[in-house]
Design a protein around this nucleic acid. Structure first.
Lengths: 144, 144
DNA sequence: TTAATTTTGTTGCTATACTAATAATTAATA
DNA sequence: TATTAATTATTAGTATAGCAACAAAATTAA
C-alpha cells in the first residue's frame, strides 16, 4: 500500500465503523419498539445525568451544532419526553428538563442501551479500550 | 466510571471523532473552493482506481446503501464528473465512468486530500495505526 | 416456458449534519 | 447612555443515512 493512501484508508475505516455502530444501535432501537433515535437518547441521558441544561450546553456536550440540537429538542418535546422551561436569568434561553415520562424512559432503556453498546466491544481487552481511547482523542485533538 | 457506562462513552467518542474527521475534511474542501463533498470524492476515487463500476459495486465498496449511492451519483452526474453508461449485459444496471473532467479533478485533488487525511494522524505511530485498525475491524465484525 | 424469486436501481419519508442568515436578547465599550 | 458586539436559538437550504416500497429486469424453479 502506498504510504500516502494509507491515511485515507484509515479515515475511511473510522467512518465506516462509526456508521456501523450507529446503524446497529438504530436497528436494535427499532427492534425494541422504541420511538427515539440514538441521538435523541444521548440528549435524554445527558439530562438524566446532569439535570436541566440549556440548548447550548446540550449541543456542546454532545458535540452537535445548534440547529441540530434545536431539531432534536423539538422532536423530544413532541414526544413529551422533555419540556422547555424559561431560563430564569436569560430570556433568550430555555432550560431543558426531562418530563416524568422522559425520566421513566431513560430508566427503562438504560440497561438495554448498555447491552447494545457492549456488543461492539466483544473480544476486546481493557488495554484495547485504553489504546482506542488514546488514539481517538489524539485524532480529535489534531483536528481541533 | 461505572463499568457499563464505559462502553457508551467509547461509542460516543468514536462517533464524535468520526464526525470531526468528516467535518474537518468538509471544511478544507470548502476552503479549497471545491464543489464536491467528501462522500462524492470517495466515489470518484473508487472509479479512478478501479475503472467503471455499477452502482451496486460502488455502494458495496463504500459501505453506503443503494438510495444514498443513487443520490451521490445523481449529483456527480449534474456536475459532469461521471457518466452513466448502459451496462452491456444487464439493462437494469449502469456502468458508472469518470468523464475527462472527473479524471482531471481526481488528479488535481488527490495530493491535497492526502494532506487532509494525514493531518488526523499527527503524532501517532505505525504501531498505533495497526492497533487502531485491528480494533475498528473487530468492532465492525462484532456488529455484522 | 411460465411463475416465483432475486437483483438493480429509484422514489418518498424521516433524521442528522453543516452552513448561512436572521431575530431577540444580553454584554461590552465608547 | 447609546452603540456595538456577542450570545442563544431558529429557519432555510443542501447533503448524507437509513428504511420501506416500488418498478424493471434477470435468474431460478416448477
Amino acid at each position: 500500500m502506498q504510504e500516502a493512501e494509507k491515511y485515507s484508508r484509515y479515515s475511511f475505516l473510522l467512518d465506516k465503523t462509526a456508521r456501523r455502530v450507529k446503524q446497529y444501535a438504530k436497528q436494535r432501537f427499532r427492534e425494541l419498539g422504541w420511538t427515539i433515535t440514538i441521538d435523541q437518547w444521548a440528549v435524554l441521558k445527558q439530562l438524566y445525568d446532569k439535570g436541566e441544561l440549556n440548548q447550548r450546553e446540550l449541543a456542546s456536550n454532545t458535540f452537535k451544532d445548534h440547529p441540530t440540537m434545536t431539531r432534536i429538542i423539538d422532536l423530544l418535546k413532541t414526544k413529551e419526553l422533555i419540556e422547555r422551561k424559561p431560563h430564569p436569568g436569560d430570556r433568550r434561553s430555555f432550560m431543558i428538563a426531562l418530563t416524568t415520562g422522559g425520566k421513566t424512559m431513560v430508566e427503562e432503556c438504560l440497561p438495554e442501551v448498555q447491552k447494545i453498546r457492549m456488543k461492539a466491544w466483544d473480544n476486546l481487552s481493557e488495554k484495547d479500550f485504553q489504546e482506542f481511547k488514546r488514539i481517538l482523542e489524539s485524532i480529535h485533538q489534531n483536528l481541533s
